[in-house]
Design a binder for these strands. Structure first.
Lengths: 197, 197
DNA sequence: CGCGACGTTGATTTGCCTCAACGATTGTGG
DNA sequence: CCACAATCGTTGAGGCAAATCAACGTCGCG
């Protein structure tokens, strides 16, 4: 196994136990992929044919509405998944763009191989069930935060929760993630010049 | 099998195929439960010891922040799941309240039985993986809507998407779900008296 | 070096909230 | 079944958080 798979392996083992045989089988289906900075690995309207796991670098998962506003749904760094889950599951047209914002490295698996993996390693079903359930919790919490916290509170919550990510992206990207304008982020920052983090 | 389980069975079969044996095993672990209108089946701070599936009636899943504002996360009617997923998974303190807003009927399974079910019917892992993934999609979409649509647009989107639910809840509850005030919903309605739906 | 995206700042606007008052509806106990 | 309370829904006045628009400085990159 190479270094890339070690990251994925560690991620898996945090959720459930797996034998070496199972890990080998899993490893077999994932392929490494290098992506340049600025490269799109998925565009709106495309079908998402892969499920990706980030080994290195950073991705921005976003959507653009009719008015042309880009909204960033989330950032994916090392140890995160990148995919348009809806498009991947149903092999339907994607509503999201996925773009590398740094030179990046991923492990990817195709839809067909994913199904083969489920056949060959039934425990993978459990693994991805657990991970999906955790994802549901995270999205629920984020929605609640959007309803209960002000823009300023959300901004500092983001900085505190994802300090490594914050340092690698622009304020404009943070603003887009939080659902506010770049200008307002700038005003929040000015107001809090003394505050650290 | 009783009528309640038929609803659950139909739900399951929409996601994957199951043999009669598997269905019987599953049925064995679920128990019917009647709940009165206004009854809480979970309160903030409690541990969520069940996963519930609504057969009849309606539930409101909500959270109250420090300022005492209640925010409704979602409504669950027939064919929906009700649980505090985070609390159920980790058997930790719940951040949500779950209250019946109509006389209701549920199927419930305990955490222990759920684990037994996964053991006895491995395909249940697949089933719940698929359902959790769909839930992720739904939560992602809802977040995007909150970032891209105005309160008015979200209000009508809700009416159009959940016409049956809309008719069974108050405007105040819709407002709370949308993250806006009751008063503002009233003003949206006034402005659109001519519009149907 | 120059261009285009980013960041900042100020003026102005607006979507939605807060507060308060009051009518309408629903629920409840006698 | 009625009386009365409680909650809901509506309306208006006023306020605030955040958006919009515009101008300009700054930085990174080809």
């Amino acid at each position: 196994m190479d270094k890339g798979f070690d990251v994925l392996k560690a991620n898996f083992l945090r959720h459930t136990s797996l034998t070496d045989d199972e890990l080998n089988s899993i490893n077999h289906y994932y392929e490494e992929k290098q992506v340049e900075k600025g490269e799109y690995i998925l565009r709106q309207g495309d079908i998402c044919r892969f499920e990706g796991f980030v080994i290195e670098g950073c991705f921005e998962i976003s959507t653009s509405d009719a008015r042309g506003n880009e909204r960033i749904l989330y950032f994916a760094v090392k140890d995160w998944w990148v995919m348009e889950i809806d498009s991947f599951i149903g092999q339907t047209s994607s509503e999201l763009d996925i773009k590398a914002i740094e030179p990046s490295q991923l492990l990817v698996i195709t839809k067909t191989d994913k199904e083969r993996l489920y056949q060959e390693v039934p425990k993978a079903e459990r693994l991805f069930r657990i991970m999906s359930q955790r994802a549901v919790v995270a999205w629920q919490r984020r929605l609640i935060r959007n309803h209960t916290m002000t823009a300023e509170e959300r901004y500092f919550h983001f900085l505190n929760t994802y300090p490594e990510i914050s340092q690698r992206i622009t304020n404009k990207q943070i603003a887009s993630y939080l659902g506010i304008t770049q200008e307002f982020v700038s005003k929040i920052r000015r107001k809090n010049l003394s505050r650290r983090s």
